[in-house]
């Protein structure tokens, strides 16, 4: 049976992991390669590396980092943050990334999704959607959720699929950082209407939140950062908990 995926997200700044401070058993928790390999060994189904600085200077550092991760890690991993062109994607895939995630650049120029899907195949193109509920409607936001756009989230999800996105990474800015649970209603609405997988992100605080996002939210994968980095929840324990409650998991 196809399993639901648990995905830790590693934020990268200038080639270093931020927020990984509770990993006392690692030699260097700030080393994305070591942290990525640790997660791969301890039950993660995939990894997402998000370059939160994403400046041109950092591009070379990021490509080199991707190469190091690909050498060490034997599960699929995605790279996101500041990706805006075919050249960016080509460099990251050639360095060994399995997928890339694009966000603001796709909102700015939706045709980029078509071009990337045609060039590299839909399977490696994830479109990340940051969403916030404003005056009764879920709107797409860009630039880490700071800027509102006139695009409705539900409509945008349909459009990115039609244009060739292989997966959607849906982050609710309303729940992100709250640890009060994922945005299950919106996730379910988008997942039910989509034929591509939905990775839900934002709001994970407890094991039950993951159970809810897979049942109520109908998500295909659940992504979180700090609860894993600070070892509030260990991935293997989470997967055992979910499996016992009947969610298909790779144990």
């Amino acid at each position: 049976m196809l399993t639901k995926r648990i995905i830790p997200c590693l934020d990268i700044k200038e080639g270093r992991t931020v927020k990984g401070t509770n990993f006392v058993d690692l030699r260097d928790a700030g080393d994305p390669v070591e942290l990525g390999a640790f997660y791969a060994e301890n039950g993660a189904d995939e990894l997402v590396f998000l370059d939160i600085t994403a400046t041109i200077d950092n591009r070379k550092t990021l490509v080199e980092l991707v190469r190091q991760v690909a050498r060490q890690v034997n599960i699929p991993f995605t790279v996101g943050g500041g990706i805006g062109s075919i050249e960016d994607v080509s460099a990251l895939l050639n360095a060994g990334a399995d997928k890339v995630s694009i966000n603001s650049s796709a909102v700015r120029r939706p045709g980029l999704i078509d071009e990337l899907a045609l060039q590299f195949g839909s399977q490696c193109i994830i479109v990340a959607i940051d969403t916030r509920f404003v005056e009764g409607v879920d709107w797409v936001h860009t630039h880490g959720g700071r800027n509102i756009t006139p695009i409705k989230t539900v409509e945008w999800a349909k459009e990115v699929e039609q244009r060739g996105a292989g997966e959607i990474l849906l982050t609710s800015m309303d729940t992100d950082g709250t640890k009060a649970g994922f945005a299950n209603k919106l996730t379910a609405e988008i997942s039910t209407n989509a034929s591509i997988p939905i990775i839900a992100s934002g709001g994970a605080g407890t094991m039950e939140d993951f159970y809810d996002v897979f049942t109520l939210g109908k998500a295909d994968a659940g992504l979180a950062a700090s609860i894993f980095h600070f070892k509030e929840i260990e991935i293997n324990a989470l997967k055992n908990y979910l499996a016992k409650k009947g969610i298909p998991m790779r144990i």
Binding site: M1, L2, T3, D45, Q123, E167, S195, P197, D220, R250
Partner: peptide
Amino acid sequence: LKIPHVGWNSIKSQGENDLMKGLNETEF
């Protein structure tokens, strides 16, 4: 069900399978 089939799924060895030697009959 969604198409493409994306993610970890279990496979079950069938008859002669030289590449799954040393693995369980079912693996992800």
